[in-house]
Amino acid sequence: MRRTIDWADGAIVIIDQTALPGDYHLLALRTVGELVDAIQRLAVRGAPALGGAGALGVALAARLGGDVRADAELIAAARPTAVNLRWGVERALTKLGQGADAVLAEAQAVLTEDEQLNKSASAHAAGIVLAECPRRPLRLLSHCNAGRLATVGWGSALGVVWHLHERGLVEEVLVDETRPLLQGARLTAWELAQAGVPYRVQPDGAAAAAMARGMVDCVLVGADRIAANGDVANKIGTYGLAIAAAHHGVPFVVVAPSSTVDSSLADGTGVTIEERDARELTEYAGIGITPPGAEVFNPAFDVTPAALITAVVTENGRYVP
């Protein structure tokens, strides 16, 4: 599969993740407004991929002219929880004084590094999973999408599955459907099918029951922001998974590049949690499914305390707060 996000012919080219799994097609984004819209409606998503989007967005703005720093701030603010988006923007801005070509070269370096760093992080994590889980082959549980589609081209948490599958060590992956936009059922399941990895999709609410039945050897998730103390912000439902895993003695492993660590935050209480449109819960395919006027609590992310996490793993190995 091609990169999730790339640069070609003067445009940012992304795989449109809102169309999967029914339709695989590419979008060419030629304005900053188009990029911001793609980020906000999750056509491109996943913390590492957003880092690439932020860097390429600055490169695009630099080539178009205008107020590049104002455009950069629009991009960085498009989604508040994932630290990688602003990180990518700020990294590309360091080259602004050297001209548009230098900014683009830096953005392209971000893309290349992301693939390499996630391969390394997931390889480290695979070793930790094998050390923590004696059963073979392994039964793994995935939440949201932390595969190729969430990164530039390899995957963080799902990258662990690729490493283990190559060695014949995966029995199956239980895939949480993942509210609110079903990134597990739509995207992770699609990636696993493409790779020939056995999987089953389950409702988010079934995860604890699966652990109680002894169906899960390890939980693997990515991260959108990691606080200095090791608290992890990730897709809503991750916190509940970690509580269930701790109760059942199931290892809980977080995999992400070090750019996801926000050392400015002492702990997870400082993470800004994005709230999604109420219609994601009150409607299905444009048809109302709740009583008119129903109030909604629809956070996109939650924060899992470090005490519930077996290991946070980056390209440098196990993260030590």
Rank of each mutant, 00 (worst) to 15 (best):
G10H: 05
S263G: 12
G168C: 13
V89L: 06
E106A: 15
L140Y: 06
G184I: 05
A266N: 04
G65F: 03
V175A: 05
A300H: 06
I226Y: 00
H163V: 15
D37H: 14
D114F: 02
N84H: 12
P305K: 09
S142D: 02
A195P: 05
L42S: 00
E191Y: 11
L50Q: 00
T31D: 07
L138Q: 04
Q98Y: 14
A266Q: 10
A11H: 03
L93S: 04
G288Y: 09
A246V: 11
V216L: 11
R200M: 11
P134E: 02
L96D: 00
A105T: 14
C218A: 13
L111G: 01
R200A: 13
G57D: 01
L265A: 07
G214C: 14
D176Q: 13
F301M: 09
S258G: 13
T238Y: 03
A311V: 03
G237S: 14
I287T: 12
A306T: 11
D231L: 03
G153P: 01
A189D: 04
S156M: 01
L96M: 10
L85A: 12
E171P: 10
E172M: 15
D71V: 09
T272N: 14
L42P: 05
G317V: 07
V110N: 03
Q40G: 13
H25D: 04
H163T: 11
Q194C: 10
L26G: 07
P291R: 11
A100C: 13
L56D: 01
E132P: 02
D23C: 09
A223L: 02
T31H: 06
Y239W: 15
D67I: 04
L140K: 00
A131M: 07
E172W: 15
A123I: 10
V312D: 03
G270H: 05
P21C: 12
A70N: 08
V219T: 03
E280W: 13
E132W: 07
T304I: 13
V173D: 06
H163G: 01
V170W: 02
A223E: 01
L20D: 04
R63E: 09
A82M: 11
D6N: 11
D67N: 09
T272H: 15
A126H: 03
V197H: 01
V161G: 00
A285D: 12
Q116W: 14
T314Y: 07
K235V: 01
A8M: 13
G153T: 01
V152N: 11
I243Y: 15
G54L: 01
Q183L: 01
L265F: 02
A195V: 12
E106R: 13
